[in-house]
């Protein structure tokens, strides 16, 4: 059953159309990856799902409700959380405060167990609990951003290029954490440029180019299709 369904969405910035009739479905409990080069509209897609951008056309459904055009905070409270491009932590708050602020609209009693959960995913954060988020390295900030999105206890987790600007060894730690989240059965929609990191953790993949989905299918299909990998992913 699909938990998120996007149909014929047209979205962008003022007169600049970026997503041009995009449709996508994400199955419950699965990890779906959208691969695309720089500027193909990956972040625009996630901003449109989370209500920062209102689509000009098309609809977005989350479970049984239409969320097209809803406010970002409402979409978040419904159970869709985003680890955004640029991480966007609260720089003067500590790691712990950054994480706790995300539990503001969920049940208080679960706060401790959720903290345990994210420390299990990114053990490094446990030692940094009282450090100000703005003073951390890029990789650590990315971990906090993902952890903060998890603290909301979402039904679907959206990840915007978690590998961006990070050294290979840090990317591996981040994706190891994402894989642990996936293993708990959480639905994930991840947008990425780095196909080698994303393919091992994904169930299905879409290829995005110029605001349109060029191809969708299972990871194994993509692995066995050399021409597709060549033309879109350069692998």
């Amino acid at each position: 059953m699909s938990i998120l369904k996007i149909t014929d969405v047209v979205s962008g910035y003022g007169k600049a159309i970026v997503l041009d009739g995009l449709s996508l479905e994400v199955e419950e409990g699965k990890c779906h990856a959208v691969l695309g080069p720089n500027g193909s509209g990956k972040s625009t897609l996630l901003k449109t799902i989370t209500g920062t951008l209102k689509p000009y056309k098309g609809e977005i459904y989350f479970k049984d409700s239409k969320i097209t055009g809803m406010n970002t905070f409402k979409i978040s409270r419904m159970g869709i959380s985003l680890s955004p491009e640029g991480r966007r932590l609260f720089p003067d708050l500590t790691v712990k405060q950054n994480l706790e602020i995300a539990t503001m609209f969920t049940q208080d009693k679960e706060k401790e167990s959720k903290l345990e959960f994210v420390f299990n995913i990114f053990p490094r954060l446990k030692d940094r609990i009282n450090q100000k988020a703005g003073t951390m390295s890029g990789g650590e900030q990315q971990m906090v951003a993902i952890a903060r999105a998890i603290m909301i206890d979402p039904e679907i987790l959206l990840l915007d290029e978690p590998s961006m600007g990070l050294a290979h060894i840090i990317k591996e730690q981040i994706f190891e954490g994402i894989n642990k989240i996936k293993e708990t059965g959480k639905t994930i929609l991840i947008v990425e440029q780095d196909a080698t990191m994303v393919m091992p953790i994904s169930d299905s993949i879409s290829i995005l180019e110029h605001g349109r989905i060029k191809w969708s299918g299972n990871v194994s299909e993509l692995e066995n299709n050399d021409s597709l990998r060549n033309s879109y992913l350069g692998l």
């Binding site: 989370t50 920062t52 406010n71 970002t72 905070f73 978040s76 409270r77 959380s81 985003l82 955004p84 966007r88 932590l89 609260f90 720089p91 003067d92 708050l93 602020i101 995300a102 503001m104 609209f105 903060r148 999105a149 909301i152």
Partner: peptide
Amino acid sequence: LATSQDKYAAELVGVNT
């Protein structure tokens, strides 16, 4: 406090800014 530091991030964690 959250809104003052990053309005967009505050919305993302559910704050009605």
